[in-house]
Simulated assay, not measured.
Amino acid sequence: MSPPVPRIEKVQHSVAPLAEACLGYLIQHPEELLAFMQHAGLDAAALQSAVGSPGLQRGLIDYFAANEPILLAFCANAAMTPEDFMRVWYKLNPAG
């Protein structure tokens, strides 16, 4: 059994901690990490060099927002509501 994803505090105001937690979730679930990498067109080296970049942060949040099962699992593990997650997504995508 893998350890729980760290709880996210005040995530509605910051993209970086949420994206970091999303990446942590994917690292704990290799099959999901592979699916994200395939979706984003990243290999391991490209993913590693992109860690912390605004583009990867946005891509991680977009990926989770578009994938309800992984979004719900992530939110349950992070003690976060899907609504709080989607508030951060909306800040990145105000036009919807």
Rank of each mutant, 00 (worst) to 15 (best):
F64I: 01
Q12T: 13
Q28N: 13
Q28S: 15
F64Q: 00
V11I: 15
M86Q: 05
L71M: 11
F85Y: 10
P3M: 10
M80P: 00
A79P: 00
A73D: 13
A66C: 06
Q12C: 04
P82Y: 00
V51W: 01
R7K: 14
V15S: 04
P3W: 09
Y63K: 04
A79K: 08
Y63T: 01
N67P: 05
A44W: 07
N67W: 08
P69S: 08
N93V: 00
I70N: 02
D43T: 03
Q57P: 13
D43F: 07
D84M: 04
A46R: 14
L72D: 13
A40Q: 15
N93W: 01
P30D: 14
H39C: 13
P3A: 13
I8A: 03
L60G: 06
A16S: 07
I27P: 03
Q57V: 02
D43S: 06
P94Y: 04
A40N: 07
L47E: 09
N77D: 14
L18K: 01
P4E: 13
E32Q: 14
L23T: 15
A95V: 08
P69T: 02
D62S: 03
D62E: 12
A50C: 09
N77T: 04
Y25V: 12
V11N: 05
A73H: 12
Q12S: 06
I70V: 15
A21Y: 07
K10N: 14
G24D: 09
L92A: 00
A78I: 03
A46M: 12
A73M: 11
G24S: 11
Y90T: 01
N67I: 02
T81H: 03
D43Q: 08
Q48E: 15
D84R: 04
E20F: 07
L23R: 12
E20S: 15
M37H: 13
A66R: 02
D43C: 07
A44I: 07
K91L: 11
S53I: 13
E20W: 06
L92N: 00
P17G: 03
L26C: 02
P94G: 09
G41N: 12
P54W: 09
F36Y: 12
A35I: 02
K10G: 10
P4D: 09
V15Q: 06
L47S: 07
H39W: 15
A19Q: 04
F74I: 03
L34N: 11
H29R: 15
H39P: 05
E68S: 12
N67G: 04
Q57I: 04
Y63P: 00
E31W: 07
L34H: 10
G96C: 02
E83A: 09
